[in-house]
Nucleic acid binder design. Structure first.
Lengths: 214, 214
DNA sequence: CATTATAGCGAACGATCGTTCCCGTGTCAA
DNA sequence: TTGACACGGGAACGATCGTTCGCTATAATG
């Protein structure tokens, strides 16, 4: 039987197409996030993976297919990471726990290079590609909001937050944090400052919406 | 004396260079906001102003100069429109006045095509051009926040809002609104829905931070 | 073993890019 | 009228783009 690269169970120095494909996509993500799709050329892309230009076409039949495959990967990664309910973080047991959990999430999402580059690509290409547009809305707006809608509902049930519209609270909480994450993407030298701002905002938020009296 | 196109006091069908320059920049803004700087070519750009490719170089000496001139214009427009204190909207006399003022501003900024295209261009080019990066931060984050910091301070003085950190409140107020404005840029068909969300958020905000008791 | 498929390479293709050159036209000053 | 000059058009330049071709080496297949 012929080596099936779509499954990549082959071993040794050869038949590593799957691997190469992923290295290409990783390099593409990096270049697209810096110069955009139109501003990236195949020669540089191939060079950064250590290949000649033409070898690229053994793995992808066109530049557009690289873009689509990258988008597929980003969509799949997002669905796996944020789409399923079992990946919901546990409802915090205290207001301070909410702050800590928030800072943990932000710290991860701001320092994970792949996620940072994904946000950049989506910012650049959101007006040109319909699927990028959809994913951008989920990344930048609805994803975090839906997640925190459930968390806040749980915290209200526990009596940690005052009874209120949990969806509205989630939106009011995540949108400012999202804005500061964007700032970190744009001006990485301000990351520390932005993280401090996020923590201050988080504390202000819990002070505002905490359950008072009984 | 030779017609001085830098002042554009000439009349009639000729000597309208200043006008042509502005038409070129307007067309450039439109194309850059759709396909980005790298994705835009001079031929199409010239065509959309009704000129041959080469005539473009009578007015700008390169594609990069068009980009820089456009950025100059955007920076100048922003400074004039939002930079000076005399353009601050008056402090509302009531909480409902804040909601109304907010909706008026949002309605303008979401429907003014030039401003919409400016935001799109900044989204696309913020990671490639240092000046675009700076302007993006002001457009997307600090501009509105600084403006509402003063407005909220005034409303606290008037006893309309409870005493609090006006800068923090401004950030908590403007960031979610900004996020929904971005949604309108990205998915214009959701504009009505987003506007309703902004109004609901604004009302929720004033309910949360209004002065209570006597 | 011979065969076949895979994956790399350099050369080269046609298209398109930003840009330049040259020429024609209309308008102004002298 | 005659230059000078601003402005526009079309042809063409060299560079670079995405892409294809033909070749070679290697490794799995039977």
């Amino acid at each position: 039987m012929v080596c099936d690269r779509s499954v990549a169970f082959c071993v040794g120095g050869a038949c590593v197409a799957k691997d190469t494909k992923e290295r290409i996509l990783a390099a593409a993500l990096e270049m697209f996030s810096q110069n955009g799709y139109a501003g990236t050329n195949i020669r540089e892309l191939a060079g950064s993976v250590g290949m000649g230009k033409s070898s690229m076409y053994r793995h992808f039949e066109s530049k557009a297919e690289i873009w689509n495959a990258l988008l597929d990967e980003m969509i799949a990664y997002y669905a796996e990471r944020f789409g399923s309910p079992e990946h919901l973080p546990p409802v915090p047991d205290s207001l301070e726990g909410l702050v800590a959990m928030t800072m943990g999430m932000v710290d991860f999402t701001v320092h994970d290079e792949k996620i940072v580059m994904t946000r950049k690509v989506l910012s650049i290409e959101q007006f040109r590609d319909a699927r990028a547009r959809e994913l951008a809305t989920r990344h930048f707006l609805t994803g975090l909001t839906e997640m925190f809608t459930q968390i806040f509902a749980g915290m209200m049930d526990k009596g940690l937050l005052r009874q209120d519209d949990s969806k509205m609270l989630a939106f009011a909480y995540t949108a400012p944090i999202s804005a500061l994450i964007h700032l970190c993407d744009r001006e990485p030298e301000k990351t520390e400052e932005a993280m401090a701002q996020i923590e201050a905002f988080s504390r202000h938020f819990v002070k505002t919406y905490q359950k008072t009296g009984e």
